[in-house]
Design a protein around this nucleic acid. Structure first.
Lengths: 355, 355
DNA sequence: GTTAGCACTCAAAGTAAGTGAGTGCTAATT
DNA sequence: AATTAGCACTCACTTACTTTGAGTGCTAAC
């Protein structure tokens, strides 16, 4: 008996011997399928351990004491606790792949615009997993690549600002005085000379006052344009969250309690509420890969009865976005993690072969 | 007794005498509040008719026979049928206003961009009514106002297309050969000369071939640009549906059956599914005002247990969008219609004082 | 250490009786 | 003729009680 000897499997440390581990695994897998508490007799038959239900009961009793499983009520079978799921996820999922071979084709087909691509990813994932999904736009500091002012109407200027990665934004600026062509040209040159290659945080006071100096009598317009740039960048257009399959949540009886489901669905409707999940550990180099949050581990209150799996994708050096799958605790972790890993590879390919 | 004499109230024709009408109204109003079937005794006390429950019962029996009310089961009170609601809506709502005085301020505050405005309208409405709401972007034939080609990178052109109402779209066009400044200028002139003032349907073959002729050796690019215009216009970006408060549906027990609610919420998630509702009677001059769909009257299957009230707003001559409120049949029609009418006035003001 | 056996627990499903809001009909009242 | 009181009847809903069966923990035997 090695009950008290800690075991090392891979890199994780836990206190379970082989048999307990197998039983725990069996319990969890069975529960994932059925959603019902699992009894000793089921395990006795389900596994190839050839143990009687009585033995299993003893082991289960131990597992319960250690906090890996629990009984919803005295005479019911056992269900995994968050700790149990956690061990399962940590230990039993470290590779796995294939599946969704065709995903890539579909993705490329739709990859005309990043927005559409991401929305499509969310949809595809939701359709494939039957869970709720969430995809964020990648975030990074935009650098001005090119600015152009044009007059489109008496007193109305159109400012087109191209950032790196060919993100194009535009804004209409109202001006009091009409500008002639030469002035416009001059302004365009000033703007481009000074701002090219800069991101928002690098546009500081010295630069601004220099620009104004150059602009001479049209210094006011410089102000307007800078303001337009700030507005356009901070408009939030560039940080969107796409979701899909939120209603999948109602498929799972343990989540479809009307009160809780309502709260959860509301979180999906108000996409901003998801930002906690997205920001979480975004800066942590270590956790760029796949993250699993079980129950109370999630930063979002409404999801405390769910599990969340997120993955970070990289468009290119320093430009990251997140993909998340939200489902019941008895989520098919194996498959979800596999699917996400696969998706990351696909996205990687698409982005690397595109720019 | 004038049971069989048709009465004219306003412009509508029905077959109810005054007393029956009052009773029907009382039943519906009571049901709107409680959501429970209404019994004769309640009505007897609730109204100022001073009739015994027995008399009411007789009248209710008549009303049932005529199809205005029904019993969910033998010994239950009565609830309105779709026909009952319909009469109620037709007869009893023809004016009403005020409320939400502050709505306008909030709207103006947010009215920096149409998109945001509309999304905000949806949200406000949802928050105020506790129903689900839907707002569409206005649709019309866009006319080209101004086109500008710029080179932003080797082999990449940026086409900025301004349509009337200052809708700005952009598209990056890849070209094989690099263009010098003069060619660009020339192309810009050609494009603007030919396309200004035209909408998509007016760009026909003769015009295209003339343009190509003028463009000389760069005729290929003309094609690319035209394609870009078509793409940009038909991208669907310009026809969006904003929704809000979809989860409000779960507030109403009669809609929160998990199966049906799921279907309904899915309709809101896949906003495209709402288009039936939006297209409906869009062309019908007559019905530009407020439309009420009760139960099976709605063109959307999933909403057959709901009522839908839509209103058409006008940004300016010929440019229409829709606002819709979706709730249970026992919707507070009076309030909803009032709110919508009010909103239409507000929007009208905003748009008229803006352009 | 493992297992068979048994008493025990308890959620869930089923059954039965009671309650009350509501109806329809009939006969009396106005 | 219209209204009303009275009464028998219906039926969803509630409550209490019973049954069922999956599952447990413990103990004694293997």
């Amino acid at each position: 008996m090695n009950k008290l000897i800690k075991c090392r499997e891979g890199e994780k440390v836990h206190e379970l011997d082989d048999r307990k581990l197998k039983i725990l695994e069996a319990i969890i897998q069975n529960y994932l399928e059925t959603g019902e508490p699992v009894g000793s007799r089921t395990i006795s038959k389900y596994t190839d351990l050839n143990l009687s239900s009585a033995t299993i009961r003893n082991e289960m009793s131990d597992l319960e004491e250690m906090g890996y499983i629990t009984q919803p009520h005295t005479s019911a079978g056992r269900i995994p606790t968050d700790k149990g799921y956690r061990l399962y996820v940590d230990l039993l999922l470290l590779d796995k792949n294939q599946e969704l071979e065709n995903m890539r084709e579909i993705l490329i087909d739709k990859a005309d615009r990043l927005e559409h691509l991401l929305q499509h990813v969310a949809k595809l994932l939701a359709a494939n997993t039957n869970y709720a999904t969430m995809v964020t736009t990648p975030q990074y500091k935009k650098k001005v690549k090119f600015i152009q002012l044009t007059e489109i109407d008496e007193g109305q200027l159109l400012a087109v600002i191209v950032f790196d990665k060919n993100i194009v934004k535009n804004k209409i600026i109202k001006v009091a005085t009409s500008l002639d062509k030469e002035t416009l040209l001059k302004l365009n040159i000033v703007l481009n000379t000074f701002l090219q290659g800069l991101d928002l945080t690098s546009i500081n006071l010295p630069i601004i006052s220099q620009m104004k100096e150059q602009a001479g009598e049209y210094r006011e317009i410089v102000n307007d344009i800078l303001e337009a740039i700030v507005q356009v960048v901070s408009e939030g257009d560039d940080f969107k969250v796409y979701t899909s399959g939120a209603t999948n949540i109602l498929r799972y009886p343990e989540l479809s309690d009307i009160e809780k489901a309502s709260e959860l669905l509301y979180t999906f409707e108000e996409k901003k509420l998801l930002s906690d999940l997205i920001q979480d550990r975004m800066d942590d180099e270590e956790s760029r890969g796949i993250q699993v949050y079980i129950g109370n581990e999630t930063p979002i209150e409404a999801m405390k009865d769910c599990s969340v799996v997120t993955a970070t994708y990289e468009i290119e050096e320093g430009v990251y976005g997140k993909v998340g799958i939200i489902g019941p605790k008895r989520m098919d972790y194996e498959r979800v993690v596999g699917t996400l890993q696969n998706l990351m590879v696909q996205l990687d390919d698409i982005f690397k072969n595109k720019t």
